Simulated scan of single mutants.
Amino acid sequence: MSPATLPRRYPEMEGKVALVTGGTSGIGLATAQAFAHEGAIVVIASREEKRASAALKSIQGQASWIACDVSDGKRVEKLIAATLDRHGKLDYAFNNGGSGGAGRPVGKMSEEAWRKTIDGFLTSAFLCMRHQIPTMLKNGAGVIVNNSSVDGLRGYPFPGGAAYAAAKHGVLGLTRSAALEYAKSGLRITAVCPGWIDTPPITSFVKKDAKLGESIVAQEPIGRLGTAAEVANGVLWLCSDAASFMLGSPLVLDGGYMA
C-alpha cells in the first residue's frame, strides 16, 4: 500500500526534517514519499540529478535534492551543512545510499572491488553518521536508521556476494555500537534488515535470469518479494515516537526469510 493511500499515523513528524540518502529510487524513494506524507520536510541525496528530478515529482510534500556521493567524506560533510543551511536542523536520517564493485567469489575478487564495496555500503554509513550525530546532538534528539540487509545476518546465498554481506554485517556492528554510545543522549540509532525486495536491482536480476528469480522468490516463506513501501513503513515506525524504546537492534523485514 502506497503512503498516499494511508492516513497520517505520526503527527509528531509534521515539520520535522528527514534526510534520505539514495532517495531517488526503490526503498529510499518510498521512504522519502512516506516521510513527506507524514508532513516532514524531506531532503533526498543521490548522485544523479536527472533521476532526482523525476523522484521529486513523485513526492507529495516539501522535498528537495542535494547531490552527494556518500562514500566521499567531504561531500557528506557538505550534504549535512547544506541541509542545515536550508532547514536549520536534522531530525531523522535514513542512511540508505550505497554502491559496490563487481561481485566475485572471495578467491577471485580483486582488492579494488572489495574496497569499493566496503566503502560504498559500510564506510558510507559511517561517514553519514559521523556528521549526523553531532548535528542531532545539538538539538538533544534525533533518529538514525541504517539500511543493512538479511545479508548482514547470514552469508550471501549466491557466489560473489561476500563483500556485500561483509559490508552489511559491518553496518549492524556499527549501528549497535553507536546506539550504545549515544543511548542516554536522546539520540536513537537503529537499522532495518530487508529481505528480497522488489526494487530495480532485483528486477534486473530476474529479467536476466528467470531461474534465479524463481530461486529468490522461493527463499521467501511468504511466497513473494517485499515492496519498497513495506520497508518504508518500517523505517517510519522506527523514527516515530511509537518506537521510543527501540535502539541498536535491527528491524528485520524479510517475509519470514530468517525465521
Results as ranks from 00 to 15, higher is better:
153 L>N: 13
103 G>D: 06
185 S>N: 13
193 C>H: 08
154 R>Q: 15
80 I>W: 05
194 P>Y: 04
186 G>N: 09
233 N>A: 15
222 I>A: 14
113 A>S: 14
212 L>W: 11
123 T>P: 02
238 L>F: 00
178 A>W: 01
94 F>N: 03
176 R>Q: 13
233 N>E: 15
117 T>S: 08
68 C>W: 05
74 K>V: 11
205 F>H: 12
51 R>A: 13
40 A>M: 08
71 S>V: 04
108 K>H: 15
151 D>K: 02
134 P>A: 08
128 C>A: 13
153 L>D: 12
120 G>K: 01
90 L>F: 09
53 S>T: 12
219 Q>G: 11
49 E>D: 14
219 Q>D: 14
14 E>A: 15
89 K>G: 12
121 F>V: 07
150 V>N: 07
89 K>Y: 03
109 M>T: 11
70 V>G: 01
209 D>Y: 04
234 G>M: 03
166 A>D: 00
132 Q>L: 03
40 A>E: 07
258 M>Y: 06
129 M>F: 06
48 E>L: 10
74 K>A: 15
153 L>Y: 07
172 L>I: 13
213 G>H: 07
238 L>V: 06
2 S>V: 06
163 A>M: 04
254 D>I: 06
165 A>T: 07
170 G>K: 03
179 A>V: 00
191 A>P: 05
8 R>Q: 15
185 S>I: 09
146 N>T: 00
39 G>D: 00
242 A>P: 07
66 I>T: 13
175 T>A: 03
228 A>V: 04
120 G>I: 00
193 C>M: 09
9 R>A: 14
53 S>A: 14
169 H>S: 02
257 Y>L: 15
225 L>Q: 07
143 V>T: 07
67 A>V: 09
153 L>K: 14
91 D>Y: 02
164 Y>W: 11
168 K>Y: 03
59 I>G: 07
62 Q>E: 14
129 M>R: 00
3 P>Q: 09
251 L>K: 02
256 G>T: 03
129 M>G: 13
122 L>S: 04
233 N>S: 15
234 G>V: 00
143 V>K: 00
194 P>N: 09
67 A>I: 06
79 L>Q: 11
181 E>L: 12
2 S>C: 03
142 G>A: 12
45 A>G: 08
112 E>M: 08
175 T>M: 08
10 Y>Q: 02
71 S>K: 09
80 I>P: 13
